[in-house]
């Protein structure tokens, strides 16, 4: 992790301070219900990037989604997916599925051969007050503070699993329209300090380690969500 702990702490603190009302007014849910949306990015004709093992990004994201779904299922977490086959799903449809699920966490999964470790992204929309009918393209605004907090939890879990991470903010149409704490997770190969690849995206062990760390993060997030 190249961000210092302080940077991350400041980022999360600023996000929370910026919209305390958002966090309080987030829809209250029964204690037992904890839903996670897993969005396998790309699909169908929209292949995403080409990985070094010849696989398309869309195949990688689907495999990782399935792996994570089973890990979460084993931990008693209900999972909703935006796709479970090689199908093209529009960003609007992805957000629609996520919003319909009224989930406590939404992860949009990507894979890239560029960079190293795991890249986490939160929407670049400014924190906004929740409104009854938010604009579709900026609906995530009311959830940004919670999304930053979720990113912090995911980041901690990945660091604890010995992975390097980067955390930044960007515009992604599907995520920007989601009304849930949402983080885009882009998995890149694991590299040594000499930039040699130590674990590629096609490495099942690496996929398992990433999925396990993400599952641990969501379990931690559930624990935090259930605390009064």
């Amino acid at each position: 992790m190249r961000w210092t702990k302080w940077t991350l702490a400041a980022l999360v603190a600023c996000g929370l301070a910026a919209a305390p009302v958002t966090a309080q007014q987030a829809p209250s849910v029964p204690q037992a219900r904890f839903v996670v949306v897993l969005d396998a990015a790309h699909g169908g004709d929209e292949t995403g990037g080409r990985l070094t093992n010849g696989q398309y990004e869309k195949t990688f994201t689907l495999a990782l989604t399935m792996r994570l779904r089973s890990l979460l299922g084993a931990r008693g977490i209900q999972v909703v997916t935006t796709r479970e086959s090689d199908a093209a799903v529009e960003p609007e449809k992805r957000a629609e599925i996520a919003n319909h699920a009224a989930a406590q966490a939404c992860l949009s999964l990507h894979g890239s051969e560029s960079g190293s470790g795991v890249h986490l992204f939160v929407s670049s929309l400014a924190p906004a007050q929740p409104v009854r009918f938010p604009a579709w393209k900026t609906a995530q605004g009311a959830w940004v503070a919670r999304s930053l907090k979720l990113a912090g939890v995911v980041n901690s879990a990945l660091l604890q699993a010995g992975m390097s991470t980067t955390l930044s903010r960007t515009t992604l149409p599907a995520v920007d329209s989601m009304t849930c704490p949402a983080v885009a997770v882009e998995i890149a190969p694991e590299r040594s300090t000499l930039h040699e690849t130590t674990a590629g995206l096609g490495d099942p062990d690496y996929q398992a380690r990433v999925a396990t760390a993400l599952a641990a993060a969501l379990v931690e997030w559930r624990t935090e969500a259930r605390q009064p």
Binding site: T7, S124, L125, A126, P127, T166, L167, S168
Partner: peptide, 22 residues
């Protein structure tokens, strides 16, 4: 004009990851 105001970067580290604005 109706869009959200940009999310300003919180840069505590000179090598901090850049933040893409709205």
């Amino acid at each position: 004009s109706g869009a959200a105001t940009p999310a300003k970067p919180k840069l505590a580290d000179s090598r901090a990851v850049v933040i893409l604005s709205g």
